[in-house]
Design a protein around this nucleic acid. Sequence first.
DNA 1: CTTCTCTTTTAACCTTACATTAACAAAAAC
DNA 2: GTTTTTGTTAATGTAAGGTTAAAAGAGAAG
Lengths: 234, 234
Amino acid sequence: MEEQKKRILLVEDDPNFGTVLKDYLMMNDYEVTHAKNGMEGFEKFKKDDFDLCILDVMMPYKDGFTLAKEIREKNTDVPIIFLTAKTMKEDVLRGYKVGADDYLNKPFDSEVLLMKIKAIIQRKATETISDSKQFEFKIGKFDLNSKLRFLRFDAGEPVKLSPKENELLRLLALHENDLMPRELALTKIWRDDNYFTSRSMDVYIAKLRKYLKLDEKVEILNIHGEGFRLVINN
Amino acid sequence: MEEQKKRILLVEDDPNFGTVLKDYLMMNDYEVTHAKNGMEGFEKFKKDDFDLCILDVMMPYKDGFTLAKEIREKNTDVPIIFLTAKTMKEDVLRGYKVGADDYLNKPFDSEVLLMKIKAIIQRKATETISDSKQFEFKIGKFDLNSKLRFLRFDAGEPVKLSPKENELLRLLALHENDLMPRELALTKIWRDDNYFTSRSMDVYIAKLRKYLKLDEKVEILNIHGEGFRLVINN
DNA sequence: CTTCTCTTTTAACCTTACATTAACAAAAAC
DNA sequence: GTTTTTGTTAATGTAAGGTTAAAAGAGAAG
């Protein structure tokens, strides 16, 4: 079976360590892009699609967490592994908040890192069955382009959607006629689950309903305690 | 937000540590079943549905890895976290091989464990559940979709069911024409068995009967002192 | 640095949905 | 005939969701 090499973005400011790690990963059949600081890391991230990011936490100018936040704004899915110099609890917790998939304490065992990489990439691969690269949806008489973030009714003037509106509608569309669990949206879009983010989400549901009113065949139904359902009647 | 408590199976042979950890998790809103060894752990696993397993590696008779293998044979999805006494590389690698989601070295920080639990359970929630089979039932002229929680008569307008109505009808449908023991519903749905939950269940039976009246061939019979029976006459 | 604009969150208030409890009637068991 | 179990309806309390508006952030432009 012909298998596409997985692409890793490695952001590590220590040139010695970075180079060694890069070479090690490449020897294990990954395609590695090495950035020497947060700034550069973000630039490279924007330019390419990666299957995984490995970020050093301690870096001058822009630390790993800040970089992760920026990356998350662009891409809610890409797995992130943090490298922390020592096991500081605050770091670990902060990492999870930003949506880390894992973290490793330096010095770490390279085989363990490989295992983690494998496990994480595999996990994503199974998750990403259908929602891989879907950015255009037909929703009744609407067209949603979630890459450009606009919603067009009946081939008319497109309305611009805010990032959150867009993500939420996209999630709903991905589950058209099916349940889109509340939890899913909260974890994928808001990455946090408390009373207020939950209310925030409800506010966005209201906004979307307003947009979608133009087509009376399209509606967002609530399933009490579970989530929402985008239905298209005919 | 009425959120169903997540259920954790904790297998830990050290009674002191096990009890403390159990209490800590329960204080943080998890429902915890504590097994004192691998054997017991597997028995409890078979009996119930868990959202997460936390397994101690070092246990007499049946170690955590062996238990994990057995669990994996029953269930390929449930997340597993290992607790290892010290960071032995072989253990870590072996853990990943068996399909661990994470591992923690004792002693560990309890807050970190909580974060990991949260992250892992959220991750699972993300993976879309689309086993339509177990959720759709034909009951006489009715269609029950117990994932979307609606009941439709004769291809007409669907009626929304409340969570309890839905679960109860689903249980009855699973035992169609057969006895559905009272106790089964009480333990599976209400997870509690006392005078009042029992009365509550009767109230729901009445509700379901009302819905099902539309098809005179469908009825819920009582078997005194035993339970109920969903029968479809022809 | 300030202002303007767009986005998101927080707050408030109201409605709907749900589960439980109580009360009483009916049926079954003994 | 008395006790226990079940059938049913209504009342209550709480939680979740709908909606709107104001506050708070964030970024761009002046």
